[in-house]
Write a protein that binds this DNA or RNA. Structure first.
Lengths: 112, 112
DNA sequence: CTTCTTTTCTACGTGCTGTAGAATATGTCC
DNA sequence: GGACATATTCTACAGCACGTAGAAAAGAAG
């Protein structure tokens, strides 16, 4: 599920400032001068996409990211890798393109 | 630049059957019963997106993928990774999620 | 009950994609 | 070269996702 620019901005905001937020807080933190209804529409769409969860206990409702930015991004990576028949071949090209320092980091992360 | 379903099918075809193809060949190889003009429209759009190159020397024109599926996919991966502030953190989560056999493959690819 | 706040419904413009007919350009055969 | 076949471009439209927000409804507060 691809995100539009505003949806992406909202997610970035929720990731950068954790803790559930009200629509008005999101609106005030976002750049630009959007109507609250706009923010609510976007939050609802993100909720339907499974990226945002809502605490609708008492008003105003609070919204927060379902998963971390990192986990979400890993999901995207796997989605991309799943669209290709030879995952390994893509990883090979990818690893061939990263810098030496990053390669070292990868080795370390794999418990060298 | 995201691809639609038909655009994706055409790219898969061009990747799976290398060598430049005419629009009619593409049409005949694609599933479904599309008009040639449809295929030509899609090929033109893919050309504009930089994914397809056309040899317009003599008619019928021949179309082929600009880069390999692997290179294109690596581009997508880097695009995803570029949308995040801490690339390393994402890689960490990604590597943590791959199987042991794939981890071994990665180590090997990094010139263990 | 009246008023304010919050949320939902509804709506519209825009851009992308799938789809293809109409119009045009190019090649081929007598 | 003219008629016919083939290929390409133009134009168009429907559907969907997204940005955007007003109108309407639902809930809270005094």
């Amino acid at each position: 599920m691809a995100l539009g620019d505003l949806e992406r901005s909202v997610m970035d905001l929720l990731w950068d400032h954790p803790g559930p937020h009200t629509a008005n807080e999101v609106r005030d933190t976002l750049a630009g001068d959007l109507a609250v209804t706009t923010v609510l529409t976007v939050l609802s769409r993100l909720e339907k996409k499974g990226l945002v969860q809502r605490d609708g206990g008492r008003r105003p409702h609070r919204y927060g990211a379902v998963s971390s930015r990192e986990d979400h991004t890993v999901g995207l990576l796997n989605e991309v890798l799943g669209s290709v028949p030879d995952r390994q071949a893509v990883l090979a090209r990818f690893l061939g393109g990263i810098g030496p320092d990053e390669a070292a980091a990868v080795r370390r992360l794999l418990g060298d």
